[in-house]
């Protein structure tokens, strides 16, 4: 679905910090949403997490254990927070050469990493579905 100019695909889970999660069997692929990439502008660099890093689902107050890296435009840096707890299994190495994929294909080629979740069922409750995220975005605009 669409909220204004922002794409919000069905079937994904969303965080309040504008990360999306796609379940793939026992794994979860994640990236940043269309809203996030538009707010940030042209992405020039993506700081990827190390494979094997243990991460925690984002709660307040934020700590470094909840960070998966950062997405940078020329004049801003936005931390990427982990939508789920678990271990980083794989990262999108294509982003090293083509960070612009976050802009051109945020939900597909611009994915950031794959997480092996450790408490998936409990933690999914803290995320929104497409409809919930769409409402959330309307509240922000």
């Amino acid at each position: 679905m669409k909220v204004g100019e922002y794409e919000v695909p069905e079937g994904l889970y969303y965080s309040r910090e504008h990360e999306w999660v796609k379940l793939e069997g026992k794994l979860a692929r994640m990236g940043v949403t269309d809203y996030a990439q538009r707010k940030l502008g042209d992405v020039v660099y993506v700081e990827l997490p190390e494979v094997g890093k243990q991460v925690k689902q984002l709660t307040e107050p934020k700590t470094r254990e909840m960070e998966l890296g950062a997405v940078e435009s020329i004049k801003a840096v936005s931390a990427v927070y982990s939508p789920l707890s678990g271990e980083v299994k794989e990262t999108n190495s294509a982003l090293s050469d083509r960070p612009e994929l976050v802009n051109t294909s945020p939900y597909d080629e611009g994915w950031i990493c794959v997480i092996g979740p450790s408490a998936l069922e409990d933690e999914l409750k803290n995320l929104m579905d497409a409809k919930g995220y769409a409402e959330y975005l309307k509240g922000l605009e």
């Binding site: 020039v44 660099y45 940078e72 435009s73 020329i74 004049k75 801003a76 840096v77």
Partner: peptide, 11 residues
């Protein structure tokens, strides 16, 4: 000026 995101005014 490039790679300014390393610098204090942004990071």
């Amino acid at each position: 000026m490039v790679l300014a995101t390393r610098e204090q005014h942004i990071r």
